[in-house]
Simulated scan of single mutants.
Amino acid sequence: MLSAPNIYLYREAVDFRKSINGLAAIIESETDLPLGSGSLFLFTNKQRDKVKVLYWDKTGFALWYKRLEKAKFKWPSKEKNAVFSLSDFELDRLLSGFTIIGHKAVEIHDFTMS
C-alpha cells in the first residue's frame, strides 16, 4: 500500500458514477482538506460493497477501486462527523473487510451533502 501523509474517509455514500472530477469536487466544495497533498480520500457506495480511493501522485489524480464479492465494508454510518482521519493500520483493516468503527473523527467543519 502507498504511504500517504493523511488518509481521510468520507462517511456519506456517494454516487459511484462519479469519477475523479466528481469526487475531487466533493472534497473541494464540502471540506477544507488539502486535495493536492498526496492524501488518500476514501469513498463508498450506498450498498457499502465498493470503495474508491482518490489521491494526487505529483503528476495527476489517481483513482483506485475495490469491490467486495460477498461482504460489505464496515463503514461508520451513525457518527455525526462526515470525514474521518484513518491510520495506515485502519486503512488496511477497512480494505480487508474488518471494522474500524469507533475511531476518532477528524474535526473539519459542518457541511451537507449536495
Rank of each mutant, 00 (worst) to 15 (best):
A4E: 10
L40R: 06
K70D: 15
T59S: 10
F43Y: 08
K104W: 09
A4S: 09
L40Y: 10
L94N: 11
S77V: 15
L86C: 01
R11V: 07
V53S: 04
D92V: 11
V106W: 12
A13W: 09
F16N: 03
N21V: 08
L23N: 10
E107Y: 15
F73K: 14
Y65F: 13
I101T: 10
F61C: 00
S3M: 13
S37W: 13
H109S: 10
L33N: 00
F89A: 07
A62F: 04
L54F: 02
V106Y: 14
Y55E: 00
K104R: 13
K18W: 06
L33Q: 02
K74A: 04
Y65S: 05
V14Y: 03
Y8P: 03
K70V: 12
V83G: 08
D57Q: 06
S85C: 13
A24Q: 01
Y65N: 08
K58R: 15
S77E: 15
A13V: 09
V53G: 04
W64H: 04
S77I: 15
L40D: 11
A4M: 10
A24T: 06
K104D: 14
G60V: 07
K72Q: 04
H109I: 12
K50W: 06
L95P: 02
K70N: 15
L23P: 10
V53L: 05
F43E: 13
N21K: 01
L68A: 08
L40S: 05
I108L: 11
G36P: 10
D57F: 04
S3E: 14
K80S: 14
W75I: 14
S19G: 09
L40F: 11
D15L: 08
N81T: 07
V83S: 08
L23S: 04
N81H: 02
S37L: 11
E12K: 15
L35P: 05
A105D: 03
F98S: 15
A62H: 12
G36L: 14
A71S: 08
L94E: 04
I27Y: 02
L40T: 12
I26L: 11
V53W: 06
D32R: 08
E12R: 15
Y65W: 01
F41E: 11
N6Y: 03
V14G: 07
I20Y: 04
M1T: 15
D32K: 13
L95W: 09
I100E: 10
K50M: 06
G97K: 04
L2Q: 15
R48P: 09
I100R: 06
A71Q: 05
V106D: 14
Y10N: 05
K66P: 02
N81M: 15
L42R: 02
E69P: 10
N81Q: 15
P76Q: 11
S87P: 05
A13D: 13
N81E: 11
S85V: 10
Y8D: 03
L91F: 03
L2R: 14
R17T: 05
E30C: 00
N45T: 01
F16L: 06
K18E: 06
S29N: 05
D15S: 03
F61N: 00
M1N: 13
L54Q: 00
K66S: 00
L33E: 00
I26N: 04
G102K: 03
G36N: 15
L86T: 04
L95D: 09
I100Y: 11
A13E: 08
I100G: 07
L9M: 06
F73G: 07
F84A: 01
M113H: 12
S29C: 00
S85A: 13
I108T: 04
F89P: 01
S39D: 12
S39F: 02
G36Y: 14
H109K: 13
D15R: 03
L54M: 01
